[in-house]
Design a protein around this nucleic acid. Structure first.
Length: 339
DNA sequence: AAACAGTGCAACCGCTCTGAC
DNA sequence: TGTCAGAGCGGTTGCACTGTT
């Protein structure tokens, strides 16, 4: 398993290629064809190692290489394939004619990866992770107050709501105040959440126990209100959030953009389980929307993106990319009513 | 205008795989 | 079976460019 001779050991040139070197390499390969890279530099009159020539040819000079910006379709393909193949750049490149593995790798590391991180998505697992988000900006958002969360009760799975309540409580560090607010807003809650079985009002400590008991054990590890760090450390993917836009009910919309992934996902594969109290008719209306349907269908949640936005600027692409995890909100579901 | 920081990408490094001998 | 060279791969680096202060 000998390693290829290093260029500098042989006094060969390294660094950027000059146009003259490119011309020599192109002309030689056009005449003799690629291959036999070890002897190629000498025969072509290049002071380069064969490996450098091969890389220059395969990554840059090859006539079938497509230069320029990645299209949305290419970007979508990369994300999809990466979710399946991981960092198998050559395998991904094989599905993208004209693109090299190096180019795809660079594009992933400089664009897509960062974008996914900003969206709170683990670029390795493609699963949403709250600890990747700027939670402070989320939790201090005026849109994410208790009343708004409570109004979500009619739509959200109670576990998700409970988790959100924990977030708020952890943020405020004041469970007593939280209970007070809950009781002030009890019209939005299931009665059993704020009352004992005999109908008497809950005490703060009782409420804290209920919250912790109703929270899945894999989400919270403490019987009382966890601090923010504990929340972050926990498996928060089951209540995905996005910090990109906190205005006009965007949080809720983003919260509904729960992607499904392949095995090991932190999130429900059937988004309908995320809803609570949504009528069958409303679910049916949602399912008629192709984009929403694509979210509900696992494991190809990304297919809807091309129908969502087809932007070309960086901002549009970020919006578009977040669209990979989004579905169109049907008209029957007016988000403004919930926020 | 200059200094600095951030970004993007070409190229390199070092390792593994594969096939010939 | 072991060795070697060629080829391929993923990770990393260095530098030019751009934006910000």
């Amino acid at each position: 398993m000998g390693r290829s001779p290093c260029c500098d050991k042989n006094g060969l040139k390294k660094g950027p290629w000059t146009p003259e070197e490119d011309t020599k390499l192109i002309q030689y390969i056009q005449t003799h064809g690629p291959g036999n890279w070890r002897t190629l530099p000498k025969n072509a009159g290049l002071q380069r190692c064969g490996k450098s020539c091969r890389l220059r040819w395969t990554n840059y000079l090859r006539p079938d290489i497509k230069r320029g910006r990645f299209s949305f379709e290419e970007e979508e393909t990369i994300i999809q394939l990466h979710s399946v193949l991981g960092n198998k750049w050559s395998a991904i490149a094989a599905r993208l004619p004209g693109r090299t593995d190096n180019e795809i790798k660079n594009y992933w590391n400089t664009h897509i990866r960062k974008r996914l991180l900003r969206m709170g998505i683990d670029p390795v697992t493609h699963a949403p992770r709250l600890d990747l988000l700027d939670l402070s900006s989320i939790l201090t958002s005026p849109q994410l107050n208790l009343s708004n969360l409570l109004r979500l009760q009619t739509l959200l799975n109670p576990e998700a709501l409970t988790l959100a309540l924990n977030l708020v409580a952890a943020n405020s560090g004041n469970p007593d105040g939280l209970l007070q607010k809950l009781q002030e807003n009890q019209t939005f809650l299931n009665p059993h959440q704020l009352q004992n079985q005999d109908g008497t009002a809950l005490q703060p400590s009782q409420f804290a126990n209920i919250v912790s008991q109703e929270t899945p054990s894999n989400l919270l590890t403490t019987p009382s209100f966890p601090n923010q760090d504990q929340c972050i450390q926990g498996n928060m993917g089951q209540f995905p959030m996005n910090s990109t836009d906190h205005s006009n009910g965007q949080i809720f919309q983003e919260n509904l953009t729960t992607p499904t992934t392949t095995s090991g996902s932190l999130i429900p594969t059937d988004l309908s389980s995320f809803f609570y109290g949504v009528s069958d008719q409303m679910k049916a209306d949602m399912s008629e929307n192709s984009s929403f349907d694509s979210v509900l269908s696992s494991p190809a949640p990304l297919n809807s993106a091309s129908t969502y936005i087809n932007g070309s600027t960086e901002d549009e692409r970020e919006s578009l990319c977040s669209g990979l995890l989004r579905f169109d909100i049907p008209e029957c579901l007016d988000l403004a009513d919930f926020m």
